[in-house]
Nucleic acid binder design. Structure first.
Lengths: 224, 224
DNA sequence: GGACGGCGTAAAGAACGCGTAAAAACAAGC
DNA sequence: GCTTGTTTTTACGCGTTCTTTACGCCGTCC
């Protein structure tokens, strides 16, 4: 099931899209403005965003920027403006596609399919395994020697971020901003506490970690 | 450098695109028909395809299908037909984007950027190799004879700056201001200490460096 | 030839970041 | 309102990293 976040300030259009997309098998999360859209994107698993640029509370470009700060979810922009300048700005801000009104529903559906086909193709790896534990990204579950390991929400967020970037060094700032929010970018003690907990739960020898590595002063790294 | 395969049967348009894209830093591989396009795509490394649907020798949709049979390279379709049916068909055949003529060059460039950003994000793996060590810029890791070499934050900053300017002379001031900050622009002694440490970790004979070279009185240079 | 400036090496102390444990604050469910 | 689970603080020992100091080398310039 594909979940679409639809952002539009006009109730009729929002409702029409909601009905039509639902009729074509999509789960629709409606949002009447940018604030609720950004909030919804963080609390729910969104597969693709359909965004009308004309929003009452904030600039549509800021919504794109807000999303692109932490996610690569496909964004399809709807706009009444045909000017090429608007298109360039939206695309460069991080949008994936730009559709001008009026548009046919079948065209939007085709572009939705094209967008989900792309992103779906590259995220076809919902499981990451190591010699000592297995992380099931899709089901948000962790197994160690066949046994399921309980994770608190924060523990899971940290682990997921690291596991989704295997081998890559993830800076402490990045972890803190993505898990706790930008205001906590300097609360590095949190990380030490949670890394210790993760290691206690997942590593054979928590004092000598093999997969959840520290790069002193730089960040943390997940080694598969 | 991004390579674009441009497929169009009209010589003027093909030539215009070739000139304009080249002027914006793209390498252009031109193809006047579907057959040569498919052939070119198999013999050369193509980063993105710009495809006009109106071709003399075969249906544009078949070109899309022919490409999608073996590659996920982004395809941007150009077409004079505004009908939504055509768009749906092209997108469902595997195209990533659909632009109707007439279109502005800046819009096409923006869509090119959007397309390469998506695919480039997953393949862009900047690695710099020398005979003695390998620097993985993306993952912030250094290998020497297969073994990972630990770097402190300051060591990494200096090394990264040098490696990102291969062969170029980097002045001591530049290194000091970018790594330690403008206030330290005259603390050249720091550099000697850290260059010595880098050489000890990376060079076979630290006393006779081959890759991390000193230009007396001027700065340092990384020789690949 | 000797003084000088720039460079490389080594080794100290100081400052900082990390890991660990445990207590306090907070939220949620019954 | 209490219990349970989770997050946030607090405290401290330890190792790493940064900065500083000292000294020897090699050229150039007086």
């Amino acid at each position: 099931m594909t979940t679409v976040l639809v952002v539009d300030d006009e109730p009729q259009i929002l409702r029409a899209l909601q009905i039509n997309l639902h009729a074509h098998g999509y789960t629709v999360v409606p949002a009447p403005n940018g604030t609720t859209a950004l909030a919804a994107a963080q609390t729910q698993a969104i597969d693709v965003v359909v965004l009308d640029l004309g929003l009452p509370d904030m600039d549509g470009l800021d919504v794109i920027a807000g999303l692109r700060g932490w996610t690569e979810v496909p964004i399809i922009v709807l706009s009444a403006r045909h000017g090429s300048h608007d298109k360039v700005e939206a695309l460069d801000a991080g949008a994936d596609d730009y559709v001008t009104k009026p548009f046919g529903l079948d065209e939007l559906l085709a572009r939705l399919r094209a967008a989900t086909r792309r992103s779906g193709a590259q995220t076809a790896e919902p499981r990451v395994e190591t010699a000592e534990f297995t992380v099931d990204l899709a089901n948000k579950q962790v197994f160690r020697q066949g046994e399921a390991v309980r994770m608190t929400p924060t523990e899971w967020s940290v682990l997921e971020l690291l596991v989704r970037n295997p081998g890559r060094l993830v800076s402490q700032q990045q972890i803190l901003t993505e898990v706790w929010g930008p205001a906590y970018a300097k609360e590095t003690h949190y990380l030490r506490v949670y890394m210790a907990q993760l290691r206690r739960k997942l590593e054979n020898d928590p004092a000598a970690p093999v997969h959840l590595l520290t790069e002193a002063g730089m960040g943390y790294r997940f080694a598969p």
